[in-house]
Design a protein around this nucleic acid. Structure first.
Length: 499
RNA sequence: UCCGGCGUAGCUCAAUGGUAGAGCGGGUGACUGUUAAUCACUAGGUUACAGGUUCGAGCCCUGUCGCCGGAGCCA
């Protein structure tokens, strides 16, 4: 019985008889030869069967895409094989001959792929994203582990809202109305008073009716909470965490980035120190005429690019109608579709940009930074940018006002570069009992459900704070994805719960 | 919730208001080293649904449903 080898390790078995177990990814055949492309989750292997192997050949030719099988043969180097190693098959055990697999190795629309998400995961691109995600999670856990953090799991069912209740999913809890948690933060604060440095990592739920490429109804958040930490230290932790995650992905997931077409050079620039701005500085930047001039130039550049794209599209469409061979036609059709999407995006940008510029020009202190403002700001830097000290009025009750300027709070947001938006939000917490009670009263909050939270300020209160990192947005940014739905195996989006 | 776009074969898309088409995938056959193989033949349709305008509607109008991404909100 030959040993079963993962395809990734086949190069260590050259000249040996080995078995591989997997699924038929693709098949090509000549008259007297058939190539089976087998995937097993570790890699892709070309297996060769020749017509002289009568029975084996007949079986191999009849296999459908995604058939499950165990193939035994001689591992040998061959420059013509993808990966440089192929298997000269000697025996084949079919677990199931699958027929009519719905996802072909051709272009598909997003709706169709989302409807078949359970199968879409098998495609190389989706599997690569899941591997990057895995590495990022592991890197984050290693980072906390190496820095003396304790993992504390916080409850998913929560009695009320830390922020607006309109954004929470209601659940019936033995007849009582409770909600799916949108953060573990308040509980983490309690844990931090017990353990010093803690973090939680789990699913979190937002009932916001957001249908955009940046939003999920259910997403995973990594939240550290640190006793005795004040705002500058929190920024260091946020910066350190993100750098550790990027670094791990760069060392372990080169192949995946190549497959995804990710610009690795942009990722290699992610190193400390990240630019740090206060909200007030960000507002000044938004209102800076120099920024507006730069944006106008970018707008011009986009207009030029748009024209180029439209010209290119005309050429491609011409080629498409003239294409003789089927696969060329298909490929060109795909290119045309991609280009059209690019043109749509560009047109939207060109149309929106003057509005953004006007909005930025007229930005008034006290407004929240909108998605467009964030995009403008993050585009100014090649690294993630930290923005701190937002107006108190637009932020949550638990955030501590800045000493000497009670109009702003000691919060931090991190914006990812390349227009990916906010990946981290956090703050130093209000640790003074009286101040917290007053703020809660101002917000019209009932203190009773929060007595336990107030206790943390009654018994040995210390300065502390933390933040939440949105895993999926981070994965999207690091993988260079257009849409957050590809960053999680089974995305929960507004209006979609299947599969 | 609001704004915009889309809905044609299993998939990706064509089709001035005038006979619903192509490529891929499926099926059959040919081909001994393919790289999304290629070539020939072939089956495949209530044009999302319901009304309306018209001699005639996939196309125009109204409504419904579904999907997409943007705003608000947020990670």
């Amino acid at each position: 019985m030959p040993t079963v080898a993962p395809i990734r390790d086949l190069c260590r078995h050259l000249g040996q008889e080995v078995a591989i177990r997997g699924w038929l990814y693709g098949k090509r055949s000549g008259g007297k030869i058939v190539f089976l492309l087998v995937r097993d989750g570790t890699g892709l292997c070309q297996c060769v069967v020749e017509a002289a192997q009568t029975d084996l050949f007949a079986t191999a030719v009849a296999l459908g895409q995604e058939s499950s099988l165990e193939l035994t043969g001689l591992a040998r180097p061959d420059v013509r094989a993808p990966g440089g190693v192929e298997l000269a098959a000697s025996s084949l055990r079919i677990l199931q001959n699958a027929t009519d697999y719905p996802i072909s190795r051709k272009a598909h629309g997003t709706d169709f792929l989302m409807e078949h998400r359970h199968l879409w995961l098998r495609s190389p691109r989706q599997a690569a994203i899941l591997r990057v995600r895995h590495t990022l999670i592991r890197a984050a856990r290693d980072f906390f582990d190496a820095n003396g953090f304790t993992l504390v799991d916080t409850p998913i069912l929560s009695p009320g809202a830390a922020e607006g209740a309109g954004t929470l999913f209601p659940v019936d809890f033995f007849g009582a109305p409770v909600y799916l948690a949108q953060t573990g933060q308040l509980y983490l604060e309690a844990a931090a008073m017990a353990l010093g440095r803690v973090y939680c990592f789990g699913p979190t739920f937002r009932a916001e009716k957001s249908k955009t490429r940046r939003h999920l109804a259910e997403f995973w958040m990594i939240e550290p909470e640190i006793a005795f930490a004040e705002l500058p230290e929190l920024m260091d932790w946020a910066e350190g965490l993100v750098c550790a995650m990027v670094r791990a992905a760069l060392t372990e997931r080169r192949e995946e980035f190549t497959l995804l077409g990710r610009n690795i050079a942009a990722l290699e620039k992610i190193a400390p120190p990240f630019p740090r701005l206060t909200y007030a500085q960000a507002v000044d930047l938004l209102r800076d005429p120099q920024l507006h001039r730069q944006l106008e130039q970018e707008l011009e550049a986009d207009r030029v690019r748009l024209k180029e794209c439209i010209a290119e599209l005309a050429g491609l469409e011409e080629q498409h109608t003239r294409a003789r061979q089927g696969w060329q036609q298909d490929k060109l059709a795909q290119q045309v579709a991609d280009l059209r999407e690019q043109i749509r995006d560009l047109e939207a940008q060109v149309a929106q940009r003057p509005v953004h510029i006007e909005h930025a020009r007229n930005f008034v202190w006290g407004e929240d930074l909108g998605g467009d403002d964030e995009t403008l700001l993050s585009r100014q830097f090649e690294r993630p940018v930290l923005i701190t000290e937002y107006p108190r009025k637009i932020k949550a009750f638990y955030m501590k006002p800045a000493p000497g300027n009670p109009d702003v709070v000691l919060n931090l947001d991190m914006l990812a570069p390349e227009g990916y938006g906010e990946i981290i939000g956090g703050s130093q917490r209000e640790d003074d009992l009286d101040a917290l009670q007053k703020r809660m009263a101002d917000e019209g909050m009932h203190p009773a459900p929060y007595e336990w939270y107030l206790d943390l300020r009654r018994y040995g209160t210390v300065p502390h704070g933390g933040f939440g990192l949105g895993l999926e947005r981070t994965v999207a940014w690091i993988c260079g994805l257009k849409h957050i739905r590809e960053t999680i195996a089974f995305p929960r989006l507004m209006g979609r719960i299947y599969p």
